[in-house]
Simulated scan of single mutants.
Amino acid sequence: MSKTNAKPPANKPAAAARPGFFGNIIAELKKVTWPTRDEIRKLTVMVLVVAFSVGLVLGVLDYGLSYLVDNFLLK
């Protein structure tokens, strides 16, 4: 059996044309749109507020359920 419809291997660029792994990383990092200081500050405050709020809600829920279990189910 011969492979008459087999495609030849794709041409690879020369090794000198590729900057390498770290060169690719640097090239990609140059394409990134970095946030401004003001955006970082706003997003950090938002994360802290959300984390505190979720922690508070879960704490209140845990306390309430513990109270119900202790006073009504284990009595």
Rank of each mutant, 00 (worst) to 15 (best):
M1W: 06
M1D: 12
S2P: 12
S2N: 14
K3L: 10
T4L: 15
N5F: 03
N5H: 08
A6M: 04
K7W: 00
K7P: 00
K7L: 02
K7D: 01
P9F: 00
P9D: 00
P9N: 05
A10K: 03
A10H: 00
N11K: 05
N11W: 00
N11R: 02
K12P: 00
K12C: 05
K12I: 02
P13I: 00
P13N: 01
P13R: 00
A14M: 06
A15Q: 10
A17Q: 12
R18G: 01
P19S: 02
G20A: 03
F21S: 04
F22K: 09
F22C: 03
F22W: 15
F22S: 03
G23M: 01
G23Y: 00
G23H: 01
N24A: 13
N24E: 15
N24T: 01
I25E: 11
I25Q: 11
I25G: 01
I25T: 04
I26Y: 07
I26F: 08
I26H: 08
E28T: 07
L29C: 07
L29W: 05
K30A: 02
K30P: 00
K30D: 02
K31A: 03
V32Y: 01
V32G: 02
T33E: 14
T33A: 14
W34P: 01
W34N: 04
P35S: 05
P35M: 09
T36K: 03
T36N: 03
T36M: 06
R37Y: 09
R37K: 13
D38H: 12
D38P: 05
D38L: 11
E39G: 03
I40A: 11
I40T: 07
I40E: 14
I40Y: 13
I40V: 06
R41I: 10
K42H: 08
K42W: 04
K42D: 14
L43Q: 14
L43G: 06
T44V: 04
T44E: 08
T44L: 08
V45L: 07
M46I: 07
M46R: 13
M46F: 07
V47F: 15
L48Y: 08
L48T: 08
L48V: 08
V49P: 02
V49Q: 06
V49E: 06
V50F: 09
V50A: 12
V50T: 10
A51Y: 10
F52M: 14
F52K: 09
S53P: 01
S53V: 09
V54N: 03
V54S: 05
G55T: 07
G55R: 04
G55D: 08
L56G: 06
V57E: 01
V57N: 01
L58G: 02
V60T: 10
L61F: 12
L61G: 13
D62I: 10
D62G: 15
Y63M: 12
Y63Q: 11
G64N: 10
G64E: 08
S66N: 12
Y67G: 08
L68R: 08
L68M: 13
L68P: 03
D70G: 13
D70C: 07
N71A: 08
F72L: 10
F72V: 10
F72K: 12
F72M: 06
F72A: 10
L73I: 10
K75P: 12
K75T: 09
